[in-house]
Structures are given as structure tokens and as C-alpha cells.
Amino acid sequence: MPTDTRRLTGPESSQSPYNFAPCSKLDMRNLEVRPDGRSFKQLRPLFLRTDVVSQARGSSYIEMNDTKAICAVYGPREVLRREDFSLKGQLTCDFKFATFSCKQRRQHQQDSQEKDLSVQVLEALEPAVCLHKYPKSQINIFITVLQHDGCALSAAIMCASLALASAGIEMYDLVVASSAAICGSLTLVDPTAQEEETILKSTVKLDANAGSVTVAYLPSMSQVSALSSDGELSFEVLNKSMQECVANCQRLYPVLEQTLVKHQQELEASKS
């Protein structure tokens, strides 16, 4: 992979000091309380606001305790290349973890995980945007995760859908997303990075069911727009946790609605 020579990079082989730290993994079998004191079914508080990037058409910021992401939407603008002509508008999405956002330092270039997440965010938003209203044009979404503490995908989806709405892009519905981590009979709603990693990065089999699910949902149309699961789960467990995520999405929907209403009120106030 080509690297940017203008940047100062670290030594070719270096290791994170955390690799030598005593194990920070949770004991999933005997977990009674979650490390942050939440109950298993409790979501983290959700904070959202719009208009954080003044130059963008629309922008938003999301905070779920220590997961923080910012999103900017540019466009609709003309598609320059003729071969990309399409009567339906095009949506592009660029998902990036800030280099300092995770425990391990990230590269400034998009890695394969970030590319995968970009596609997933895009596919979660596409069903919600009235792309037929934007012929010959493209809308660009840029998401940067500033701090990662689990559920980056669902935070990114919510943040981006709010940014699109605040940009005045015509949409069928807002997109709400929610995740859950599963280990055996335990279902941890809205998992933190520590909980996610304990379950997904384990090299030994923790339980017959160990994994995580993320669902993006269009609440007023009751449609699932994105669905992603990792780890090994049985069909029944996966189905059940999917329903649970959908229910959580419905609980989060009013927060997004209110943020959007507030954005609109502020816009009206600044006009008059």
C-alpha cells in the first residue's frame, strides 16, 4: 500500500504499549454489572446537535458517552464525469476513524474496515433518501469518528441521517440505528468498545452464541435499511436480538426528531 511520504511516520515496526498491559478483557461468564454501571438493557444517553460545520450544507455531531462522531454533508452538486450520468442521484459516503480515536493508532488512509463501514453506512441511508429527486447530481457524506467507544456504525448512521435532513435533502424518513452485543444468554444493548472487543476479538470460543448485531431502521415506515452481524450466532438468537435492536431504534427516534425540530426553529429564528 502506498504511503504518504510527506507525513512523518513512526518506525516501521512498533507496538502499542497496551499489548503488554494486563488483560483488559471482561469476564463474560460471570458478568453481573456492566463496567459503566448500566443495566444490560440500558442505552447510553444520546446527544445530538446540528450545524456544527458552518461551510457544509448540513452537518451534525453525535455523542453517546465516549463515542463521538461528526458528519458533514455537501451537495447536491453536479456530477462532472459524463459516464457517471444517472437519472437517480448518487450518494457517496466516506467513513473515517480519526487517527487518535481508537486505542490503537489508526492510519490516516482509509483501511479495509473503514471502507467496509463506509459501504454499510451508505446502504443504510440510501433507502431513506429520495434520490430520484436529484437527477445528475451527487450528495457527499463525510463522517469522522472523533472518539470510539463502541457502536461506531450506529452512531455514524444516525449522525449522517440527521446531517442529511438538516441539509434539506428530501428524505422518506430519518434513519435510526442501534447495536447489541450477545454472549450466551446475555444481551448487552449499546455495547462499549471494551464489551465489543471482549466478545468479537476472543480467540477461544466464549459460548455457542457470541457476537454483535447492528440494525438501522426507518421508524415511520417500519423498514430495516441496514443489518449487520459479526461473530457466531444461532438463527433464533440473531432474530431475537434483531427485534430488540428495532425496539431500541424506536426508543431513540424522538431524540432525532427533536434535534431536527430544534434545528428548524433555530433556522427560522435566524431568518427573522
Binding site: 441496514a226 459479526d230 461473530g231 444461532s234 438463527f235
Partner: peptide, 26 residues
């Protein structure tokens, strides 16, 4: 897998799906 467990899943494409039909598809 051979045992019928699901090791990963994702939705692809520009459309959305009903949650009941997802269960049927799974």
C-alpha cells in the same frame, strides 16, 4: 455453518426490508 449458526450477516443493496421478511430470508 454446517450446524446452522450464522457467522456474519449484512444487508446489501439500495432497498430496505421488512423485519418479518428478513426472518424468512434468514
Amino acid at each position: 455453518t454446517e450446524k446452522g449458526t450464522i457467522t456474519s450477516m449484512r444487508k446489501e443493496g439500495s432497498g430496505s426490508l421488512d423485519s418479518d421478511s428478513i426472518s424468512e430470508m434468514m
